[in-house]
Amino acid sequence: MSAQELAIAGDADVVRVRQAVRAAAVSAKLSLVDQTKLVTAASELARNTLTYGGGGGAVVEEVFNGLRKGVKAIFHDKGPGIADLQLALTDGYTSGSGMGLGLGGARRLVDEFTIDTAPGDGTTVTVVKWAR
């Protein structure tokens, strides 16, 4: 499967991103629990892109590490960025109306989690979940 680019500009796009990540997770033969974790993380991150980043996009692709298959999803926006990353990753902290579980929760649900952000410079979050 080649990388799939999806725009995130509205609520319906968050659903489309979830569906694309689900399809990739099935194709990479992730277990049902791992599929569910990855799709849930993707849902949180896509919503962040929309709500806090003012919209952006997602790239979903299958990745390989030797014989191991996995799914990588990248969420990017050109929004205000995150000034205090440590705080943003803390459970219960929210700068908006959410529960404050999005970023920290998403990190717990995946195998690899990297975030690239600077104030005024947008945010890019990359997650990977590997098949076991």
Partner: peptide, 14 residues
């Protein structure tokens, strides 16, 4: 609630 959903919810922190 599906079992996989329950497992994920707990890990998410909900």
């Amino acid at each position: 609630m599906r079992p996989a959903v329950a497992i994920t919810l707990v890990e998410l922190g909900l």
